[in-house]
Simulated scan of single mutants.
Amino acid sequence: MNRTDRLYAIVEELRAVAPRPRSARWLADRFEVSVRTVERDISALQQSGTPIYAEPGRTGGYCLDKAHTMPPVNLTPGEAVAMALALRHLEATPFRAEGRSALRKLVAAMREEDTHEARELATRVHLLGEGPVPPKPHVLGIRRVLRIRYTDRQGTATRREIEPLGYVGKPSHWYLVAWCRLRREIRAFRTDRITSFSVLAEVPPPRKLRPEDLDIPYGDVEQLTLAG
């Protein structure tokens, strides 16, 4: 059992028996680690805000304040990125720091592989200009080839197959940056002009979105982060 899984398991064990305590020795035997490892794990959980306290005495141990906890929150990578985007609305409010702290705690509670995927997805999301971005597009996070019907600014409709590379959010619109197989080059598609789309089974070949592909002549482009 890796450390992340063990931390989850310790919290669940303490929640199951709360308000009764579990000793460090009992937890060490249960998870087949040393008492010192359990003590380090408990300290890490306490520092992250988990309400665990030590009850002294011969029958004491570690207790979880069950009234102030809830079951584990397992966000999907897409949900984590959506929350990071939603917190942009707090940037100009007195709750900016609290929002960032909440995001850090939620990301820390995710499974390691989901956290890695969420951070990778966040690197593909870029924000341009000041002010809140509109709701995230439905195509956010899709990594397969898309078949879309797109209407350009002149009202001309085309059907295309595209390979998603990244996303740019402005205060007024979202753009999907993708390799367009019709034009054989990288194009930016305004997502509200994608009138329909279907997800194909094909996984596109690896293709990096280079900084020069986002060399937008007006405004600075900021990459989304889950660091809070």
Score class of each variant (00 low, 15 high):
residue 5 D to G: 11
residue 5 D to A: 15
residue 6 R to C: 04
residue 7 L to C: 06
residue 8 Y to I: 05
residue 8 Y to A: 03
residue 8 Y to D: 08
residue 10 I to G: 01
residue 10 I to N: 03
residue 10 I to P: 03
residue 10 I to H: 06
residue 11 V to F: 01
residue 11 V to L: 02
residue 12 E to K: 10
residue 13 E to H: 11
residue 13 E to L: 09
residue 15 R to H: 12
residue 17 V to M: 02
residue 17 V to N: 02
residue 18 A to W: 15
residue 19 P to I: 01
residue 19 P to S: 02
residue 19 P to T: 00
residue 19 P to Q: 04
residue 20 R to V: 01
residue 21 P to Q: 09
residue 21 P to D: 09
residue 22 R to D: 00
residue 23 S to A: 05
residue 24 A to C: 06
residue 24 A to Y: 04
residue 24 A to Q: 05
residue 25 R to C: 05
residue 26 W to A: 14
residue 26 W to M: 10
residue 26 W to R: 14
residue 26 W to H: 14
residue 27 L to G: 06
residue 28 A to T: 09
residue 28 A to D: 08
residue 28 A to I: 13
residue 29 D to S: 08
residue 30 R to Q: 14
residue 31 F to R: 11
residue 31 F to D: 14
residue 31 F to A: 11
residue 31 F to N: 13
residue 31 F to L: 15
residue 32 E to F: 12
residue 32 E to K: 15
residue 32 E to P: 06
residue 33 V to Y: 13
residue 34 S to T: 15
residue 34 S to G: 15
residue 34 S to A: 13
residue 35 V to H: 05
residue 35 V to M: 07
residue 36 R to A: 08
residue 36 R to S: 09
residue 36 R to T: 04
residue 36 R to K: 13
residue 37 T to E: 09
residue 38 V to D: 05
residue 39 E to D: 13
residue 40 R to M: 00
residue 40 R to G: 02
residue 40 R to S: 01
residue 41 D to F: 03
residue 41 D to R: 08
residue 41 D to A: 03
residue 42 I to F: 05
residue 42 I to R: 08
residue 42 I to C: 03
residue 44 A to S: 12
